[in-house]
Design a protein around this nucleic acid. Structure first.
Length: 562
DNA sequence: CGGCGTACG
DNA sequence: CGTA
DNA sequence: GCCG
């Protein structure tokens, strides 16, 4: 058993004394010494730009969201508003004089004063690292080591506390075997490589795009900032071949990639990027529109002006000679739901490109589940997608829904998806339905259970709080948001949760791993053996990993994409 | 040199 | 082909 | 574009 719960049991079995945060050196107490009060962190904003501050703040959140980090350290990080109340000071300042403009020297001597890298490395290794190596001021090295919250032991203390699975997995071939944090030390490089990837994707070079995607994914898990010293190590990474390595080398030397800038200045690239921002327009359609002479969103608006009924799928310029698509709208028709048109998508474009804060994701979940509760009792749900991976803002909202009654074999949720969507539509919460479908189980011989998964891709818009009466509340204006609802039969709930938590590269490699190394088939409606289609029904997320022979990876470390 | 995730509308 |  |  390598499930996280078995690891955690060490800290749960011993009930800690209600100690004030004072860490002892004994190995036994290392994981069990859970302190009550959070560890206060003060960020000295001098020498930090807005982007970096945002990054550091999100790192603090990330640390707290991470179950493993929490249980290993027993500590929650909290930002402090002033230096005096903080336990640890994080700064890029290196000079006494400069630091004294932000806190007085007497205070400084009572704290651990570390570089921003301490925070990055601590979050990524899921533990509070010794401060010695990260002391921001040489002059305060002794004080920093002494006041370091990690422990009061020797600087190399944590080596004995290394867990078996920590981060020596960064060079694994499969993304589902690597720890991929939300933010990594090489974001700048990755962003530039992502432009090359996007360019190839837009031009229809799917295979090359995939290669860049894999390389980016590997770099995402690389544990430190890449410099000239690391070239050998980087070239040894999987999915980094001669072509991509040369781009990375160029970046190390010049801090930039020529091809990246060339692409960004291409008018064609800019148009294709803009076109594909519209829901339903992909690379192929975008290229066709471009070849018609269209260049801007305004051009598209003109082009689609009169075609009220231009369905989103009918954007193809060169009709496929044969084989008209079976109307994708029949299901919607049955329920009296309108179909999605290009015109609608153009109108929604602005709203849908605005990121969704976590609080609003939760708000929408609450509204949806409240409505669902009025149709069927006993439903369970989980927000998956980027939200579950710890993103501060999401592109869309994914909710996996099932029923607590395992024995019902899916009867309790069968047909619920369409029923709920219809209800939400009638109430004006769901404004658009792009897609409404059901999956079939792989094994067609089985008559016992029907569809094990139902899916709806929708757009929602909550009513604004027109605060008559209370007057106090902020009058927040809601906008359109993308909401995906996935209904899973109880026995495939955990498979669906893993399947919809992502990231995309993580999912691809999960399937690839299952096939290549385990002879299994993984898809969100189930796990099966390839040769005899024997189905498995894991009863927890940990069991899914176990079944596939994978080490547990926390959702916040599944950010294997850009 | 074949394969690259998998399924649906 | 587009989407998750 | 990279891997087995």
């Amino acid at each position: 058993m390598t499930s996280p719960s078995s690891k955690r049991s060490a800290s749960e079995s011993i009930s800690p004394p209600p100690s004030k945060r004072k860490r002892s050196c004994s190995p036994d107490s290392f994981f069990s010494d859970v302190s009550e009060s959070p560890l206060y962190v003060f960020l000295v904003d001098a020498k930090l730009n807005g982007e970096t501050i945002e990054e550091l703040i999100s790192l603090v959140d990330q640390f707290n969201l991470n179950d493993t980090a929490k249980s290993q350290t027993g500590v929650e990080l909290q930002l402090s508003l002033n230096a005096e109340d903080a336990d640890i000071i994080v700064t890029e300042v290196r000079m006494r004089a400069r630091l004294e403009r932000h806190l007085d020297w007497v205070t400084a001597k009572q704290k651990a004063i570390v570089t921003t890298q301490w925070l990055r490395d601590s979050v990524r290794s899921q533990q509070l690292l010794p401060c010695g190596k990260y002391a921001a001021l040489g002059e305060l090295y002794e004080e920093t080591v002494h006041n370091c919250p990690e422990n009061n032991c020797a600087v190399d203390a944590p080596s004995k506390a290394k867990k078996e699975n920590t981060n020596i997995r960064y060079n694994h071939r499969y993304a589902c075997m690597r720890n991929s944090p939300l933010n990594c030390p090489n974001q700048v490089l990755i962003k530039k490589l992502a432009v090359l990837r996007r360019h190839r994707e837009l031009e229809g070079l799917d295979v090359q795009a995939l290669s860049y995607e894999r390389a980016i994914s590997v770099l995402k898990a690389f544990p430190h900032h890449i410099t000239a010293n690391d070239v050998q190590q980087v070239s040894d990474l999987p999915h980094i071949g001669p072509k991509i390595l040369s781009k990375i080398e160029e970046f190390i030397q010049r801090g930039d990639i020529t091809e990246c800038n060339d692409i960004l200045s291409e008018a064609r690239y800019q148009s294709l990027v803009a076109f594909t921002e519209i829901y339903g327009i992909g690379p192929s359609t975008a290229r066709n529109l471009y070849s018609l002479g269209l260049r801007t969103i305004e051009d598209l608006e003109k082009h689609y002006k009169d075609k009220d009924n231009a369905k989103i799928q009918a954007t193809r310029i060169q009709a496929p000679a044969k084989k008209t698509f079976t109307s994708p709208t029949s299901k919607l028709r049955e329920l009296g739901l309108p179909e999605m048109t290009v015109k609608e998508a153009l109108l929604l474009r602005e709203d849908l490109n605005v990121r969704i804060p976590r609080s609003e994701v939760e708000e929408i979940r609450d509204v949806i589940m409240n409505e669902l509760g009025q149709i069927r009792r006993g439903c369970v749900s989980m927000i998956t997608g980027g939200y579950r991976r710890g993103k501060i803002e999401s592109n869309d909202i994914d909710i996996v829904i099932s029923h607590k009654d395992l024995k019902s074999g899916g009867d309790e949720v069968k047909g619920l998806c369409a029923t709920l969507v219809k209800r939400l539509y009638d109430k004006g919460i769901v404004t658009h339905v792009m897609h409404l479908s059901s999956f079939r189980p792989h094994n067609t011989l089985r008559t016992a259970h029907w569809d094990s998964l139902e899916k709806a891709l929708t757009v929602v818009k909550l009513r604004d709080n027109n605060n008559n009466g209370t007057g106090q509340k902020q009058n927040q204006k809601h906008i359109h948001r993308r909401l995906d609802l996935i209904f899973a039969a109880p026995e495939v709930y955990w498979t669906a949760v893993v399947g919809w938590t992502g990231s995309i590269m993580f999912e691809r490699d999960l399937r690839f791993w299952a096939k290549q190394e385990k002879g299994m088939r993984f898809d969100s409606s189930g796990i099966s053996r390839r040769h005899d289609s024997k189905l498995y029904f894991p009863k927890s997320e940990e069991e899914v990993f176990e079944l596939l022979g994978l080490e547990w990876i926390d959702p916040t470390l599944r950010n294997a994409d850009m």
